[in-house]
C-alpha cells in the first residue's frame, strides 16, 4: 500500500508554515558547516545554501523510516501523524539522522565555499537568517503555502540588502531564479549557481595534480530547467579530470528518482537503480553529482557498488590545498543518530 499522499505532503507543508522548513532543523546544525571559514555575515552577494544539503540527512532518515512503512500497516498512521505534527514536532522525533550523514553533507558545503574563496569571489553568508527556498512546496503544488513562504524569503533578502545570490544546489537555484520572479512583482535579485560563478572565473587554477576519468550525472533541474550543462564539465576538465558521458546525459539526463522518494520510496529506488546501471557502464574514478538529492538517492541505489560523490568534492582536490582535519571529539559511533 502506498503512503497516503495528502498526509505526507500535509506534514511537510505544516512544517514549512509553522517552522519555516519542510523538516524542522536547528539553526545551529544549519550553519555548522561554516565554522572557521570566516565568511562575513550578510553583504550584497551571499552564498545561499537554501538548507538543501543540510536537510538531506533528515530526508534520508525519513525515507528510511517511510520506505519500511510503505507496505506495512504503519503507513496508515502517517495520516494521524499530521494531526499530532501541528502541535509538536513529530518529524523531529520520528526521523533521527545519522551523524555521518550530517558530516558528509556539511563537508560538501564547506568544499563549495572554499572553492569560491580560492577563486577570489567575495561573498557573505546569512547564517541563521537564511531560509529554505520552498522547492518542495512548489513541486507538490501547495501553491498557497509556497507563495506565502516565498514572500517571507524575499522580504528577508530585501531587508538584508542582498542583491545577488550564489546558490549551491539545482532546486534552490531553480526556485529562486525561475519561480520567484513569476510570483513576486519586481523580483530583481540576481541568482547564480556556484558552478556558473566558478566556470566563468579565470583565476581558479589547480594547485594539486589530479587525474582520472569521472562520470558525470547531470541533474534534471540544472540541465532541463536551468540550462546548466557545460559549466560542470568545464570545471572538471579544468581540474584535470577526463569527463565520461553516461548513456542519458546533458539535457536528456535520466532522473535519479529522488523527487518522489518521500512519497513512493520503492518506486524511487527502482529508478535510481536503473540510473546506476547506466552510470556503471561508463565508470572511471567515480560519479560526480551536483545535487544533494541525486547524490543521496544514487548512493542508496548503488549500495556501495559505485563511488558517487558531489562534484565539489572532486573539484576541491584539485583547486584547494587540503584542509587541516577538524579535531575529532572522541571516537563517536558514526552511525549513531543525532537530532
Amino acid at each position: 500500500m502506498p503512503l497516503p499522499t495528502g498526509a505526507v505532503i500535509g506534514i511537510m507543508m505544516d512544517n514549512l508554515k509553522k517552522r519555516k522548513s519542510v523538516f524542522p532543523i536547528s539553526h545551529r546544525k544549519a550553519v555548522k558547516w561554516s565554522q572557521k571559514l570566516e565568511i562575513p555575515e550578510g553583504g550584497e552577494t551571499v552564498l545561499y545554501t537554501g538548507s538543501m544539503y543540510q536537510l538531506l540527512p533528515y530526508m534520508l532518515a525519513a525515507v528510511n523510516r517511510m520506505g519500511k512503512m510503505e507496505d506495512s500497516f504503519l503507513g496508515r498512521f502517517v495520516g494521524m501523524g499530521r494531526f499530532f505534527n501541528k502541535m509538536f514536532n513529530v518529524s523531529a522525533i520520528m526521523f533521527r539522522p545519522k551523524r555521518a550523514d550530517h558530516r558528509r553533507f556539511r563537508r560538501i558545503i564547506r568544499d563549495i565555499a572554499r572553492l569560491l574563496q580560492q577563486a577570489g569571489v567575495e561573498f557573505g553568508y546569512l547564517y541563521k537568517k537564511e531560509l529554505y527556498a520552498g522547492a518542495l512546496a512548489f513541486d507538490m503544488g501547495a501553491d498557497e503555502t509556497f507563495v506565502a513562504h516565498a514572500r517571507r524569503v524575499h522580504a528577508m533578502l530585501k531587508e538584508q540588502g542582498v542583491r545577488s545570490l550564489i546558490t549551491i544546489d539545482p532546486h534552490t537555484t531553480n526556485v529562486l531564479r525561475s519561480v520567484y520572479p513569476t510570483i513576486i512583482d519586481g523580483f530583481d535579485i540576481e541568482v547564480k549557481s556556484y558552478l556558473e560563478v566558478l566556470a566563468a572565473n579565470d583565476t581558479l587554477r589547480p594547485v594539486n595534480k589530479v587525474a582520472g576519468e569521472i562520470t558525470i550525472h547531470d541533474s534534471c533541474v540544472y540541465a532541463r530547467y536551468e540550462d546548466i550543462v557545460e559549466e560542470p564539465r568545464k570545471l572538471l576538465e579544468r581540474a584535470g579530470y577526463t569527463v565520461l558521458e553516461p548513456k542519458d546525459n546533458r539535457n536528456l539526463t535520466h532522473c535519479c528518482g529522488g523527487p518522489i522518494e518521500s512519497l513512493f520510496p520503492g518506486m524511487a529506488h527502482q529508478i535510481g537503480k536503473k540510473r546506476v546501471r547506466q552510470l556503471k557502464d561508463k565508470n572511471g574514478l567515480g560519479v560526480a553529482t551536483m545535487c544533494p538529492i541525486c547524490m543521496a538517492t544514487l548512493q542508496q541505489a548503488a549500495n556501495g557498488d559505485l563511488e558517487i560523490d558531489d562534484i565539489a568534492s572532486f573539484l576541491v582536490k584539485a583547486f584547494c590545498e587540503p584542509e587541516e582535519k577538524p579535531i575529532k571529539k572522541k571516537s563517536a559511533d558514526e552511525n549513531r543518530s543525532e537530532p
Binding site: 534534471c220 532541463r224 530547467y225 542519458d248 535520466h254 523527487p259
Partner: peptide
C-alpha cells in the same frame, strides 16, 4: 504525485 518533474518528457 509519482511524476518526478524531471522534464525528460518535455525535452
Amino acid at each position: 504525485y509519482q511524476c518526478l518533474l524531471c522534464k525528460l518528457c518535455e525535452a
